[in-house]
């Protein structure tokens, strides 16, 4: 069990999280934005599970389960919103949705 150093999990988690954030920022299409968000969420899961494996706990895994559940909800609601926006506006890229302009 101890053969994998905990630092490795964290490095992987960090790289994935950074890529997720990067994708969240740079993607133009709304659906791909959401997908980048999934990557970031999974990165957190990796960190939780890695820490658990290192310390011999299960709370991290339980948290990971919760995160999976919430990711499902987030995907459902987010995609529902995308469909609703598309139905009313016929747009699905972020630069065309400027109703939040201050």
């Amino acid at each position: 069990m101890k053969t994998i150093p905990v630092e490795a999990y964290f490095v992987v988690s960090m790289i994935l999280f950074g890529l997720g954030i990067l994708g969240l920022v740079v993607r133009r299409n709304l659906i791909t934005v959401l997908m980048s968000l999934e990557v970031a969420l999974n990165a957190v899961n990796v960190a939780f599970v890695g820490a658990d494996a290192h310390m011999g706990l299960v709370e991290g895994q339980i948290f990971a389960l919760f995160i999976i559940a919430l990711a499902a909800v987030e995907a459902a609601v987010g995609l529902g919103i995308i469909i609703a926006i598309f139905r009313y506006r016929y747009v699905e890229s972020t630069d065309e949705i400027t109703d939040m302009r201050g």
Partner: peptide
């Protein structure tokens, strides 16, 4: 990516997750 992460979980010993 998700499948690979599931693999990481298995390697870490978190079979359920």
């Amino acid at each position: 990516c998700l499948i690979a992460i599931a693999g990481i979980f298995f390697v870490a010993g978190a079979e359920l997750v």
